[in-house]
Amino acid sequence: MVEIGALVMMYMGLLGGLGGWYFGRKQARKNRGLDERYEHIWKTARSYSWYATLFAIYVVLTLAMVGVELSVVPIVSILLAVHIFSWGLIGGILSIQMSPTEAPDYLLKFIGGLALGVGSIILFIILTIATGDYRFLVIMTLPVLIGSIISIQAKKSARHPLTK
């Protein structure tokens, strides 16, 4: 029963993602947003997301070599999540950086810190569930702490722009 529910949710997520992509592109085309800048941003984001996926592959291989038992489904799920999450995050950051209006520097730092914290939580919870080893939750605290510090510092610099 669980496998059927997971299968249904997986394909519902796929259909939802494709629908969002289609209607987003349709709206962007209507607003003349599909230009060279858009193409460059998402090509670059896709390229960088492969670097993140390569890093995740090395992490998974390292875990396998030190004796952590992982099956195929959790490994592929982790790699897919890393690839899609990094693609969207990097695309969003590049869109902010390359937007015609000047994006404040603290906004990118805040998003980066938030992404580091949330991404670490998701990754280490998936690893904990996949392996049953709760030590991953202890390891998770360091990247979450670093991401929180980055986000808090960015928020403080946003409140006091003259004290940089």
Rank of each mutant, 00 (worst) to 15 (best):
S77A: 12
T101P: 04
K26C: 00
R46E: 08
Q27R: 11
T163Y: 04
Y58A: 07
G33V: 13
I125R: 13
A64E: 14
G67D: 11
G112V: 06
I149E: 09
Y11D: 02
S148M: 08
L89D: 01
L142P: 05
R37H: 07
A56M: 12
P100R: 04
F85W: 06
A154H: 04
F136W: 01
S151P: 03
K109E: 14
M1Q: 06
L107K: 08
Q153D: 08
L18S: 08
G20K: 13
N31S: 12
I126T: 09
I93Q: 03
M98S: 09
L162M: 10
V68W: 09
Y134N: 12
F55G: 10
S77I: 06
H40E: 15
T141H: 09
M98W: 15
A130Y: 10
H40Q: 15
L127Q: 01
V60E: 02
Y11R: 05
G24I: 08
S157W: 06
K155T: 11
R32W: 13
I149C: 11
E39M: 15
V66I: 09
G112S: 12
V138N: 07
V60I: 14
I122Q: 12
I90Q: 02
D105I: 00
E3F: 12
F110P: 08
R32G: 12
A52M: 11
G117M: 10
S47I: 15
I121F: 11
R25A: 08
T44Q: 14
L116D: 05
L116F: 03
I149Q: 07
L89N: 00
Q97S: 01
Y58C: 04
V72K: 07
L107E: 05
I129W: 15
I126V: 11
V76C: 07
L80K: 03
I150P: 06
M98E: 15
P143Q: 01
Y51V: 13
L79I: 06
S120T: 10
M140P: 06
L61H: 12
L34N: 13
Y38E: 14
I122D: 02
